[in-house]
Computed example of a mutant assay.
Amino acid sequence: MPQPLDTALSEVRELVLGPTLTRAVAAGRRRGPAPSVTRAELRPVTLKAGRRLQLVTDDGTRPYTRNLAVDEAAAAIDALLAEPFGNWHVETETATVQIRITKKGDAQVHRSGAPAAREPRLPGDRDPARPLDHDRAKQWLLDPGDPLFGVIGGNAAKRRQVDAFLRALAATLPEELPSPLRVVDLGCGNAYLTFAAYRYLTDRGANVRVVGVDVREDQRVRNSAVAEQLGCADTVRFVAGTIEDAVVDEAPDLVLALHACDTATDQALARAVRWNARWVLAAPCCHHDIATQLKGHPAPRPYAEITRNAILRERFADVLTDSLRSSLLRLNGYKVDVVEFVDSQHTPRNLLLRARHTGATATDAQRDEYETLTAQWGVTPALEKLLS
């Protein structure tokens, strides 16, 4: 049952300023004016100067951290509670309280027991028995103690990859998201990034609907079981099928294609274009198709040396493939950035094509550039065939 908003926010204030707080997050927005920041996170810390309440706010471009003394905390909390956030999530040592503000301005409140047990501690991690003992806590977009890591495994390398991916996602999406936000992950595999995207976007207050697609039925069964375990099976579902033919009920706003092998990335990009997806994030994997075409075609002068040796030909094929993919996306109305989304020490396949649909009409110069590039190197990208 809904309850008065003032009553719910009073409970939040009491919990945040109380002695058992572990974490609180404010995100999302209500109907009407937007909050002055997109997200605020609070947690108690112990510094050399003593106990503080750490407040991290994010304006959509960068986080800003303040460590509040006891006499400053109450005023800061009152200011946050006055902001028109759409959601509050508060964890204490004994309970979790989640509040969603309805369109009518009431509060839907859900209370449960203490959060799930944290993941096993790794070398260099802080001791969970001493949660306040640090001077500089790393700001993760998804808390390393999130129940997700307890299910998928949470070693340090995986946490860094998840965080890097979420930062790329955050940089792609606007502050105000559609409701519902429909997401499709094509070639989702074991889906740990699928679930990470869902958890992060939900933390932002988005009403998220996710479909993960993988060709293997056993992956569908396994991922569906994980969704049940995480309590999100009603909003995160999985289907077995090919990237080209899997049945998705509604066209998505956001398409993910993370490490789909070779031309599977092209299939995902083509389907995103046909859906007119508003945003696309694709991390290509191997690039055999263009490499094979280069092997069977003489390089234009004076570039024969680039493709003479197999290892250089393969590396050049990576660059050429993703350049042509970017060009084709631009020709189909997308603004495209190519970025490194995780350090190469974690994976050599660390490029991300980040595309936003603008609907801009391709220029003659863009078409000529693409046609000249493919003609000179004697290649026909798989994405071109799929789009035609």
Rank of each mutant, 00 (worst) to 15 (best):
P2F: 02
P2R: 07
L5T: 15
P19L: 00
R23G: 01
V25H: 05
A26K: 06
A27S: 08
R29H: 12
A40Y: 01
E41R: 10
R43I: 03
L47V: 01
G50D: 09
Q54I: 01
V56S: 09
G60V: 14
L68W: 06
A73L: 14
A75F: 00
D78M: 13
A79C: 10
L81M: 08
A82E: 15
E83R: 05
W88P: 14
T94R: 09
A95Q: 11
T96Y: 12
V97C: 06
Q98M: 11
I99C: 03
K103H: 05
S112M: 02
A114C: 04
P115E: 01
A117C: 04
R121W: 00
P123H: 01
G124V: 10
D125E: 15
P128I: 03
A129V: 04
A129N: 05
R130G: 00
W140C: 06
L142T: 07
L142I: 11
L142A: 06
D143P: 12
G145D: 14
P147R: 02
L148T: 01
I152C: 07
N155G: 09
K158S: 04
A168E: 08
E175S: 11
E176H: 06
D185H: 04
D185F: 03
C188A: 11
N190A: 11
Y192R: 08
R199Y: 02
T202Y: 02
D203P: 02
R209F: 02
G212Q: 07
D214V: 05
E217Y: 00
V221E: 14
V226Q: 05
A227I: 13
D245W: 00
V247F: 02
V248T: 09
A251Q: 10
A251C: 12
D253N: 13
D253P: 07
T263A: 10
D266P: 12
D266K: 06
Q267V: 09
R271D: 02
A277M: 07
I290F: 00
T292L: 08
Q293N: 03
L294D: 05
P300Q: 01
R301A: 15
R308T: 13
A310K: 08
I311H: 04
L312G: 00
R315F: 00
F316M: 05
A317S: 06
L320E: 05
L324E: 06
L324H: 03
R325L: 03
Y334K: 07
V336A: 11
E340P: 08
V342H: 03
D343E: 14
D343Y: 05
T358E: 12
G359M: 11
A360E: 15
E369Q: 10
Y370L: 10
T372Q: 12
Q376V: 09
Q376I: 05
L387Y: 09
L387H: 09
S388A: 14
